[in-house]
Design a protein around this nucleic acid. Sequence first.
DNA 1: TCAAAAGTGTTTGCAATACACCCATGC
DNA 2: GCATGGGTGTATTGCAAACACTTTTGA
Lengths: 226, 226
Amino acid sequence: MSGNFIEPLSVDSVIFGFEDATLKILLYKRSIEPGYGMWSLPGGAIRYDEHIDQASARILKEHTGVTGLYMSQLGAFGEVNRFPGARVITIAYYALVKPGQFELRPGPDASDARWFDVNALPAMPFDHPQIIAAALNRLQNQVKYKPIGFNLLPDKFPLRALQELYEAVYNIKFDKPNFRRKIMKMNLLIPLNEKQKGVAHRSARLFRFDKQRYDSLTEKGFIFEI
Amino acid sequence: MSGNFIEPLSVDSVIFGFEDATLKILLYKRSIEPGYGMWSLPGGAIRYDEHIDQASARILKEHTGVTGLYMSQLGAFGEVNRFPGARVITIAYYALVKPGQFELRPGPDASDARWFDVNALPAMPFDHPQIIAAALNRLQNQVKYKPIGFNLLPDKFPLRALQELYEAVYNIKFDKPNFRRKIMKMNLLIPLNEKQKGVAHRSARLFRFDKQRYDSLTEKGFIFEI
DNA sequence: TCAAAAGTGTTTGCAATACACCCATGC
DNA sequence: GCATGGGTGTATTGCAAACACTTTTGA
């Protein structure tokens, strides 16, 4: 317990991934008390000399091994007894990960790491279930008006993957022709001269998200909405 | 500086009001250092034994004298040097106030209190300008899908007041007939047998927001949107 | 040649927009 | 009676929803 840390303040992250048409969350099996052996959100203490966003990025790096993940603050969680034995307020973040962006490994103070389907989460310690609920809620609100969903897809993807992503996040089904038209009309996807491989049916064209075009359209008042 | 407080953690609130068809923010003139004499957001330290939402409600009460204001957390602000002389992370809230809900008075550590037009704010200390920018942004996002705007209006109001509120928040103009129809179609306003008084033209009918109806419609999947 | 998903076309109805207009009231 | 805002009517347009349909590919 060094004076290098702000003791009553921690950071916790909800890391979202998307695989098999399912929204997932990355949890770590705690190898320390309290909560030994439980699956929980990756987290850590904030240092005196770092911005809270830096703290979150550092802790994500310590757990995943990679930097540059899409990341955004959710807010502070401050129930008096949310953490046993001491008053700890935590600042929660959520992060988005592309398939295969890093290899799973146990993070600090953890013995294992695993992706869980958002609809089949294990028992979790502290207020982590509430934090996850807030993260899901935020993700649903953000993904509608910001093109952050692409941070959950590979760089090259077929339209169907995008549709399945939105279907998983909103938990509803879209009509394929109407969804395609809506997306294509935005002119934000660059069609590639590549197709899906290894599928047992007609292979779909792949697309890439055009961030530059999105930025320039946004300057002109364009509003992304799905 | 008693051990009763979590030293490195404070709460700051952006209090919004609506008067003269203008969105306003309530600021307090600091009578202590740092930032002596500057107009700033009302704030204070979090106690060890209170939920952060309670801390925010308590500090709002200490400043305004009233409880029960609509209030919601914005998030944590944690630049390393945001507060001079010590590492202080602040958790920001925004609150909505009805016209005349309380009498202005200087709060703790303040010599004066005053409403400022959001488009004509004074120089402010620390990161308060950023916090206000975030609050405005959040308000704009929230008011579109949640009926929280009514917390800025008197209990009884003419439709025009609601329109002016949305015009002030979004900073755009609406077409009056279309706005009326959109609102009335939602069936969320109860028409009263009362009219405006003291106006130099045809007086408008007053309405009241029907929260019960909103709640029951929401359960059935209704989505508020303006 | 069949299954499965890619991808296109077309109809329908609602809802946003734009704008013309009449009504009530105080000065 | 005129200025001011309250309040209503209506044509136009665009888009979302629904669904039938054709095309391509691997097994």
